[in-house]
Amino acid sequence: MELIEHARRIVNSHGEGLVHSMGAAVRDQEGRIHGGINLFHFTGGPCAELVTLGNARAHGARELSAIVAVGDEGRGPVGPCGRCRQILFDYHPRIRVLLLTESGIKSVRIIDLMPLAGRWDAVEGTQPFNADAVE
């Protein structure tokens, strides 16, 4: 809930108002929380999750444990788009994503949001994914 509240404060304080804004928060392995907000642009712009990943990395966070994106205007947690899912999966295959489901907020492994996906690696290129290595 702390991550959700952090992201909610970001989007409520810094959202655009005229367009749908998203705030995001991520927790690193040391327990620190990093946040970000999307930059709306007609070409797509960076999603809040990607801004947040960059912010976390800029502050030295290499291992991330959980992430959430929250919409403005009380929309609550929103699942990551396909591009964000792939990037989270590629860089942080152990990360958990907080999602709003029919039965409330759930913490889901990113690998469960990416069935049959290939994982990209900067050195090795695209590789088949071994879920057993992440468990």
Rank of each mutant, 00 (worst) to 15 (best):
H41Q: 13
F42Q: 14
T43L: 09
G44L: 07
P46F: 00
C47L: 05
A48Q: 08
A48P: 10
A48N: 13
V51G: 13
T52C: 14
T52K: 03
L53H: 01
R57W: 11
A61C: 06
R62W: 05
S65M: 04
S65Q: 01
I67Q: 02
I67V: 08
V68M: 11
V70A: 05
G71V: 03
D72A: 14
D72L: 06
G79P: 14
P80E: 02
P80G: 00
G82D: 02
G82N: 06
G82R: 02
C84R: 01
R85L: 09
R85I: 03
Q86Y: 13
I87K: 00
F89R: 01
H92L: 08
P93T: 02
R94V: 04
R94I: 00
I95N: 08
R96M: 04
V97Q: 06
L98E: 12
L98H: 12
L99G: 05
L99Q: 10
L100F: 05
L100E: 14
T101W: 05
E102K: 00
E102R: 02
K106F: 10
K106C: 14
V108G: 13
V108W: 12
I111Q: 07
D112G: 11
P115L: 08
P115C: 09
P115A: 00
L116C: 11
A117C: 08
D121Y: 11
D121H: 15
G125R: 07
T126I: 12
D132G: 10
A133T: 04
E135L: 15
E135T: 03
